[in-house]
Design a binder for these strands. Structure first.
Lengths: 173, 173
DNA sequence: CCGCGAATAGTCAATATTGACTATTCAAAA
DNA sequence: TTTTGAATAGTCAATATTGACTATTCGCGG
């Protein structure tokens, strides 16, 4: 349900049409989610059917008509419910990279070392990027999200380093 | 592609039928993934169509016939490819809980505090559980996965604690 | 004034994932 | 020996997600 929460949360700050919603999500909330445009429209349609939002056509100048989405009272109630659920739950986190780790013994230690070193490079770059991004979001919820991501990126980096060191020293897993 | 990698990796250790595969995944690899049974069968079918595995019917006693899945040379090659990709890549990690964090300001600080405290409880329990699970997996790839998870659970716990402390002291985000 | 790329707004068919369901066999209790 | 619950093995219809595609408008260089 976190995708619904996201859309409701954005609509709470004012009516919007689909394009603005997905644009904002992909520009400013890329660290939280990767909701694609068709998924967003699909969810908006369903939430409209559920009465959480209302859709109205809007004609501005002679641009093509746009659909404007607006939160209802039911939608606000749903938002409150979903927000509380989301904050109180600790869903287990799965890392796609763990599948590879599980089978790392299929490789010679030297090759594993080189692959993980490459991975470390990307990770370092992401960390640098987010450190820079941090300044852009002064405060509020988005700052919390950035801090959260930083925490995990740092943890990941230091973990990767211990694995790499172990590989270098022992040449074994 | 990490689900394919998982199935191929398991089949590498010997032929298996679907039930054993999914049972093993859900019992011993729950920390890596949550592949459901129908998804597994679907992937097996597709990999068979791609020539990565071969399927044969096996009759044991007078039990209902079972389909046995066996890795081919092409499948082994695919495994090698997927494994290298998986190990060298650092896919961005998204936390579903971050959506809620982004909107935490919609709640009174006192309520946020209570919800996050509840979340902390669950987290603590998961950490305890994994610490116990660690001993079960002596060494090898699965131990690495467990260590990885431990790292992130600890990071998460300490991060949650700083947020909670901040909320308690400042009563602001 | 014309052409063209960027911005705007969305749809649709294909793919992926899963909840719910079916069916058989075996072991043990009644 | 009949029932019953767990283990075994898988299917199917419904849902969710996305890549690829369609169209219109606006502003700007030529």
């Amino acid at each position: 349900m976190e995708r619904e929460l996201l859309l409701l949360g954005l609509l709470r700050r004012g009516d919007m049409h689909g394009y603005k919603l997905t644009e904002f999500i992909n520009r400013d909330m890329a660290y939280c989610t990767d909701l694609k445009k068709p998924t967003a429209y699909h969810l908006l349609q369903r939430m409209a059917a559920d009465g959480w939002i209302v859709v109205s056509d809007e004609q501005e100048g002679n641009r093509p008509p746009r659909k404007v989405y607006q939160l209802t009272a039911e939608g606000e109630a749903a938002f409150q419910r979903l927000l509380r659920d989301n904050l109180s739950e600790q869903p287990p986190t799965r890392f796609p990279g763990d599948i590879g780790l599980a089978f790392i013994e299929a490789l010679a230690p030297a090759e594993a070392l080189s692959l993980l070193t490459e991975r470390r490079r990307t990770l370092q770059a992401e960390l640098t990027a987010i450190n820079r991004a941090q300044d852009a979001h002064g405060s509020g919820g988005l700052r919390l999200v950035i801090e959260h991501q930083q925490t995990h990126l740092r943890a990941e980096l230091s973990w990767l380093d211990t694995v790499i060191t172990r590989l270098r020293n022992d040449a074994a897993f």
